[in-house]
Simulated scan of single mutants.
Amino acid sequence: MTEQNPDWTVKEIGELAPDGDVEIPEAALESFNIPFCPNCGEGSILKTDVVFFGDNVRRSIVDECYDKVDDCTGLLVLGSSLTVMSSMRYVKHASTRKVPIVIVNIGPTAGDQLATLKISAKCSEIISLL
């Protein structure tokens, strides 16, 4: 993507919000070159291995995350508003198990009422102290 869009910079698209969202101007969208998968050819758009809003997390990944929460002694949430069930489900699960939950986020989150400790700060500031 970088090779095909070398001028697609913060100056072109704007600053990211703390949750990673950004309002991309129409001109930036018009100038974006869509990369195609080098293995599948020209007809297949290259997509990153992330879950976008509206997509579903694979069941195997959901189950693996539940297993990790079952095995943990504490849950640390960094920089998430927890507004989507994809992440909030693990906070709820940890709470049910009486696992301590620490949330670091600027502003409120959907999981604040379940948190053992809520730190309202930038993640980079907190991580640098650990």
Rank of each mutant, 00 (worst) to 15 (best):
V77S: 06
D55E: 08
L29A: 13
L130S: 15
D21N: 09
C65V: 15
P6F: 00
N56Y: 07
P6A: 03
L117V: 10
S81Y: 02
I13K: 15
G43S: 13
E125N: 12
I126F: 05
D19Q: 05
G111V: 04
C37A: 07
L16N: 04
T109K: 01
V69D: 01
C72L: 00
H93F: 03
S128L: 05
E26M: 09
I61C: 07
D112G: 09
L114Q: 12
D55I: 07
V51T: 15
Y90A: 06
P35C: 03
C123V: 10
A94C: 05
C72E: 03
T2V: 08
P35E: 07
L114N: 05
F52W: 05
D71S: 11
A115I: 08
L75T: 06
L16K: 07
S80G: 00
L16F: 05
H93K: 11
N33H: 12
D21M: 15
I34C: 02
E30K: 15
S128K: 11
V50I: 13
P35G: 02
E42P: 13
D49L: 04
K68Y: 12
V69A: 00
D67L: 14
D19V: 06
D67G: 08
Y66D: 06
G14V: 01
D19C: 03
G14E: 00
P18R: 06
E12A: 08
I34Y: 02
I24E: 01
E12Y: 04
D112A: 06
F53K: 04
